[in-house]
Nucleic acid binder design. Structure first.
Lengths: 105, 105
DNA sequence: AAAACATATCTAAATTTCTAGATATGTAAA
DNA sequence: TTTACATATCTAGAAATTTAGATATGTTTT
């Protein structure tokens, strides 16, 4: 039984962009890839949009759109804290996708 | 050590199209998905382009282009026999990709 | 309540992908 | 050695993606 419904084509569309794949990689180790947050002293809910934007070097709207597309296929989980939205990896869904892709291909 | 150099973004581009994913699926079981070949009585080298075209319902040039893009990232292997080109799955490369994607994601 | 700030959404232009028709190439048959 | 046939490649218009600027929304601060 799978928790997440995986669509290879839809997830592949998300993974067919280098920046989005990079973001997923950076979120594996926020301490190593991002400065510490001001308001909170941890990365338990991931990284705020602004930091991801700075790291990627693309516009705010583009990164927001990217993160939204990643969230739509469950690759990341957003959490709002005050003015900020933090994004973290959805490890279960990522594992489920990797496993199901291995079975489907 | 990996035999095939895998680029997640490039392979994801190929897998971001339903027809190409379908073709990869059909080639898992040619006997079940295609009529028997006229000139040869086996699917050892895969399936000819014409049969794949008929099954997909897209034009000859489109299917040929799709198969070429799949071959470029090593998902399939072409073999020429007379007038026909047969395409089969590259199982080793497909396994390598599934495994490396699991590690990379 | 207004101002400031972070993020989301809307809009549109540039780029890429999709797809088929036309044509080229390679092989076999007449 | 034409002719026919299977596949590959070229060309181009349609459709989708990429990306940023403008604007909207939600939250906090003043």
């Amino acid at each position: 039984m799978y928790l997440y419904c995986v669509n290879i084509v839809e997830i592949s569309k998300v993974l067919s962009n280098q920046t989005r794949v990079d973001i997923l990689g950076w979120l594996k180790d926020p301490e190593a890839n991002f400065p510490p947050h001001q308001e909170i002293d941890h990365f338990d809910d991931g990284v705020c949009v602004g930091f991801i934007q700075d790291k990627a070097g693309l516009s705010q709207s583009t990164i927001s759109t990217y993160l939204n597309s990643m969230q739509q296929v469950n690759l990341v989980i957003p959490t709002r804290h005050g003015k900020w939205t933090y994004y973290k990896r959805n490890e279960k869904a990522i594992r489920a996708y990797a496993e199901q892709l291995g079975n489907a291909l």
